[in-house]
Design a protein around this nucleic acid. Structure first.
Lengths: 192, 192
DNA sequence: CCAAGACGGAACTGATCGGTACCATCGAGA
DNA sequence: TCTCGATGGTACCGATCAGTTCCGTCTTGG
């Protein structure tokens, strides 16, 4: 492998898919922006759909690693630690390149819920919920799974809102709701 | 107009765009499913983009009329009336044809935030927020606009979550959060 | 009754789509 | 040094894209 064509293809595809959408980006664009030849593309991937799936898998790993990092460096107390999600989202929303959630976008673009891409995207969200669930369980929350799903719903709502508004404000609003949610939730240690 | 070709075009386009996505549906599909000739299409619309915009305008009107109806028939008290949004969403999510929010989907598919379609979609959300804002103001809530934006964020979060899960459960979860939100919010009459 | 306009069907354009086949080149290991 | 695998470039495929043009038909209002 002279210059790792596969890696260049995946990173170019990931960027283009996120910036412009999966359907909007043709093979030609991926080739020209990555500098990879047409034949090399099909030596590494059977079809465009396989690139989409692999891009999503990569992004899933990167995204959750990023979330883990945000949680690790957060100075919040154990019972407030799940709010680190919204702290992180606020930063993401402020980025000029922000264009929503790649996984939500994929599920929207890929109408067929049985498609591999849709599955990978849906699984990503469940994995994020699992992270929140663990955090909430460790924080001593009684109904931690239901709470995790509510926080994830808030996060997704913030993402699509930020996509529309183009400002990080939605993260602050969602975090405000999340704070109330955690404050009114029952905890194992100190009952309400 | 023999059989109102324009109306048939718009209703076919609206259904197809929602079911399969805007980019995924070609002019050919719209023509064959509406039974309208190719020439007639371009007699009524300069381009496909114009159909997209007009479909969104129609849907915006229909959707808000539907919301107004749900609010009108709701038996909830004035301070709980905004929850009628989530009551309505629960019904929508249960429909087999449910495939998320046409406006969110449009903003995701149409990457360019300056495109006419994106604008119409964004404006729709602001109009819905205005409805919630009025409801909350009439319900006596102090910070009604911020509250309206939080409820709208919850609604959008529920929509994308329901799109992923394929069940109406997300509406119930979001409504649970909304109930807590309203209960802890300050009101003009009875301060907390 | 007849003319004007709205209509459906089909042929056609140039561009682009995803995907295949072939070829020359380059680089590293034997 | 030679060879083999990975690579980039290009020509090509059938299908489909949005959009244009022309024609025959049907409806309707004057």
């Amino acid at each position: 492998m002279a210059t790792n064509a596969k890696e260049r293809l995946l990173s170019a595809a990931e960027r283009l898919f996120y910036e412009e959408g999966i359907r909007a980006v043709g093979i030609e664009r991926i080739l020209s922006e990555s500098g990879v030849g047409r034949a090399s593309f099909y030596r590494h991937f059977p079809s465009k759909d396989d690139v989409v799936v692999e891009v999503l898998r990569r992004r899933d790993g990167m995204w959750r690693a990023w979330l883990d990092g945000r949680i690790a460096v957060s100075e919040r107390s154990p019972e407030e630690l799940p709010l680190a999600l919204f702290d992180g989202l606020a930063e993401r929303f402020a980025a000029a390149s922000f264009r929503g959630c790649a996984f939500i976008n994929t599920m929207v673009e890929t109408a067929d819920p049985d498609s591999p891409a849709h599955h990978v995207a849906a699984e990503h969200k469940e994995k994020v919920i699992a992270v929140l669930d663990r955090l909430l369980a460790e924080g001593g929350y009684r109904d931690h799974e239901a709470l995790a799903r509510q926080l994830a719903l808030l996060g997704d709502g913030a993402i699509v809102t930020a996509l529309r508004e183009g400002t990080p404000e939605a993260a602050v609003r969602a975090r405000g709701v999340a704070e109330i949610l955690l404050r009114t939730a029952e905890r194992e240690t100190a009952r309400v």
